[in-house]
Design a protein around this nucleic acid. Structure first.
Lengths: 340, 340
DNA sequence: TTGTATGCGTTATCAT
DNA sequence: ATGATAACGCATACAA
C-alpha cells in the first residue's frame, strides 16, 4: 500500500503538495499536478482508513438521516440498525443527526434536507418521497458534493447516488409464486395496500400481477387501499370480502394495514378458507402468523438495509472508498413461523 | 472517549505504565496497577480502533482459516466472502493464512491448526470436525489465548469460543413446515443426506422429523446416505424410490448429493409427482429449481457466514472489541426461483 | 505556489 | 519499575 509520503518522494515534491491535489484545495502547478495524479493512478493509491479516521475524529464528520413515516412498524428495525451502526462508527469520528418524521410529507423532507445541509452534513441517508420538492433538494445536494444514499425507496434521477433496499418487482413476483404453491386453485386474489404514494409499492404490485398471470386460471379480483391505517384496512377488507365472496387468497402488499386486514378475516370467519401472504414481519404480522391467519410473509432484511446504508456512509466519508455499485439490493425472503 | 494518555494523567503515571497494565507486559507495582485498572473501569476505557490499526499494520497480525471439504459447492461462497472480507481488512493490517482442505479428515485439521499456531496466528476460523484430535487442538488454542471462531459447524466444548452459522434444528423444522404447505397430503417423505459426520446435519434431520410429526398422517418412510457423492446419490435414490413407491416428497438435507438425487427423479419420471425441498442454492440446485425438479430450497446465507466470521476476527484482534454473543446465527431462508 | 511542523491514540524501544 | 520518545498515515495550520 503506497502512502502520500512515498508519492511525494517519487514525484520530488512535499507531502503538502500531494495533499493539495488529492483534496483539491489550494493551487498546484499544472505540471506537478499531472505528475502526481499519474503516479497515484499508477501505484493505485488509496488513503489509509485508519490514519484518516484518527484525524477525522477530531473535527468529527456529520451524516444526516431523514426518515419519513418513521412511526411505521417496518422502519423500527431499520432505524435501530442505523443507530447501532452509527454507534459502532462513532468511535472513529462519525456523527449523526437524526430527522425522524411522521407520515409522508414532501415539504418536511425538503426542509429536513435543507437543515442538514446548513448543519454541514457531508452525507445524507433518506427514504425519499418521489415529489418535485424532494427531488430538487436531493439534486442540489449531489451537485454540492454531498453523498446521497436512498434507503428503502429509490428516487428517479440521473444524478449519481446509491440505492439500498429491496427489489420490489421481484418481491411481488415472489409473493405470487408463493401463492401458486400454497393456495388452493384456482386462485382468486384480493390485494390490500396503502395507496399509491411510494414508487416501490407500485412496482411490487406490478410484479405480483405479472407473475400471477402465469398461474393457470388465476386472477386478481379486487384491490383495496388502506392508507396504512388499521381501521380503514378493516373496513375496506370487509367491503372487499362482501363484494367478492370468491376471494380465496389475499396479498398484503404493504404491512401498515395488516392488523386491520387480519381482524376483518377473523370477523368473517374465513382465516382458514383464505390463504394470506404478506410483506414484512412486523409484530402484528408475526402474531397473525402464529394464529394461522397469515400463512407466509416476505422479509426484506430491514436491519441489513440500515446497516448497509450507514456503512456506505462511513466507507465513503472516512474509509475513503466509494461504493462499487449504485444499487445494494437485499433479497426478498420467504418466512414461515418456523423461520421467523 | 477516554484515552490512555488521559488515564495516565489521571493516575499520575506515564503512558508506558498504563500500556503495561493493559497489555500485561512487564511489571507494574501492584498499587499503581490497581489504581489504573480502577480508573479504566470507571471511565469505560476502550482502545481506539483507528489508532490501534495504524500501529498494528506495521507488524501485521495473523488470522488462520481452516476449511475442510472446501471443494463442496456450499463452501464456495463462504470462502469467497472470507476472502473479500479479508481483503477489506488487509488495508488495516490483517493478514490471513489459508488452509483449504479437501474432504473431512480430522488429522489434517489438527495438523493445520498446529501449523497455524506455529506461524503465530492469533485467531483461527474453522469448520471443525467433531473428533477428539480436533477438539483437543482447539482447546489448546483457546488455552493459549487464541481466538477461535467455529464457522458453519459448532464444536462441543466448555472452552469459550464463538459460533457463526445457521440454526440447524430450525432449518430442519422449516423444511418440514414448508413441505406441509406445498406437498400433497398425506406426506410420505424420503430423506437424502451425506452421512453422519457433521453434528449439524443430524440436528437438521432431527428438526425435520420433529416438525413433520405435527403434520396429520405424515411420515418419513426412508432415509438414504450418499457421502456427498452424485453417483452414489443417484443409485441410492433409485433404490429408495423402488423400495418405497409411496414416496411423494423428498427432503435433501445436505446439498452435496443433490445432483444425483435429481437425476434419479428424472430417470424415474417422478419429478412432477414428488415434491422436493432441498438445502442450499448451489448451482446444481438452482438448475433443478429452474427445471421444476426441486420446488424450494433453504438458504443459509453462506456469504454472510464468511463475512461475519472475518469481521469478528478483526473486531477482536484490531478493533479491540469482543463479540457480545457466543453465537451468531444466520436465518434459514426459503427460496423459490423467483427470489433466488 | 510550495514546504514544514504538529497532533490524533496506540505500541514499541529506548533510557533511566 | 517507570518514563520519555519515535513511529504509523493523514490533515492542517503556518511559514516561506
Amino acid at each position: 500500500m503506497i502512502t502520500i509520503k512515498q508519492i511525494a518522494e517519487l514525484c520530488g515534491v512535499s507531502r503538502g503538495t500531494v495533499d493539495r491535489v488529492i483534496n483539491g484545495r489550494g493551487k498546484v502547478k499544472e505540471e506537478k499536478r499531472r505528475l502526481i495524479l499519474k503516479t497515484m493512478e499508477e501505484f493505485g493509491y488509496r488513503p489509509n482508513p485508519a490514519a484518516r479516521a484518527l484525524v477525522t475524529q477530531q473535527r468529527g464528520i456529520l451524516v444526516g438521516v431523514v426518515i419519513s413515516a418513521s412511526e411505521i412498524d417496518f422502519f423500527e428495525p431499520v432505524i435501530a440498525a442505523l443507530k447501532k451502526s452509527a454507534d459502532y462508527y462513532q468511535r472513529v469520528g462519525l456523527l449523526v443527526r437524526w430527522k425522524l418524521l411522521k407520515g409522508y410529507h414532501a415539504e418536511e423532507q425538503a426542509d429536513a434536507i435543507a437543515a442538514l445541509r446548513k448543519a454541514g452534513a457531508t452525507a445524507i441517508i433518506i427514504n425519499p418521497i418521489s415529489e418535485p420538492a424532494v427531488l430538487q433538494a436531493l439534486e442540489d445536494c449531489i451537485q454540492g458534493g454531498i453523498f446521497v444514499i436512498a434507503l428503502n425507496n429509490d428516487f428517479a434521477s440521473k444524478a449519481s447516488h446509491v440505492y439500498v433496499g429491496s427489489d420490489y418487482t421481484a418481491g411481488g413476483r415472489t409473493a405470487a409464486a408463493l401463492l401458486e404453491k400454497i393456495a388452493p386453485q384456482p386462485i382468486r386474489a384480493g390485494i390490500a395496500y396503502s395507496g399509491a404514494r411510494m414508487l416501490g409499492h407500485i412496482h411490487r404490485i406490478d410484479g405480483f400481477r405479472a407473475r400471477l398471470e402465469k398461474v393457470p386460471d388465476a386472477m386478481v379480483v379486487a384491490v383495496s387501499k388502506n392508507d396504512d391505517d388499521p381501521i380503514k384496512a378493516y373496513d375496506e377488507t370487509l367491503e372487499m370480502l362482501a363484494a367478492h365472496p370468491e376471494i380465496n387468497a389475499i396479498f398484503i402488499a404493504t404491512s401498515g394495514g395488516a392488523r386491520g386486514v387480519c381482524q376483518a378475516l377473523v370477523k368473517k370467519h374465513c382465516e382458514d378458507r383464505i390463504t394470506v401472504v404478506s410483506f414484512d414481519t412486523i409484530p402484528a404480522i408475526q402474531e397473525a402468523m402464529q394464529k394461522g391467519i397469515i400463512d407466509a410473509a416476505i422479509y426484506q432484511h430491514p436491519r441489513r438495509q440500515g446497516q448497509i446504508a450507514m456503512q456506505l456512509a462511513y466507507d465513503h466519508l472516512i474509509g475513503g472508498s466509494d461504493p462499487m455499485r449504485e444499487q445494494y439490493l437485499v433479497q426478498n425472503e420467504i418466512r414461515l413461523t418456523e423461520n421467523l
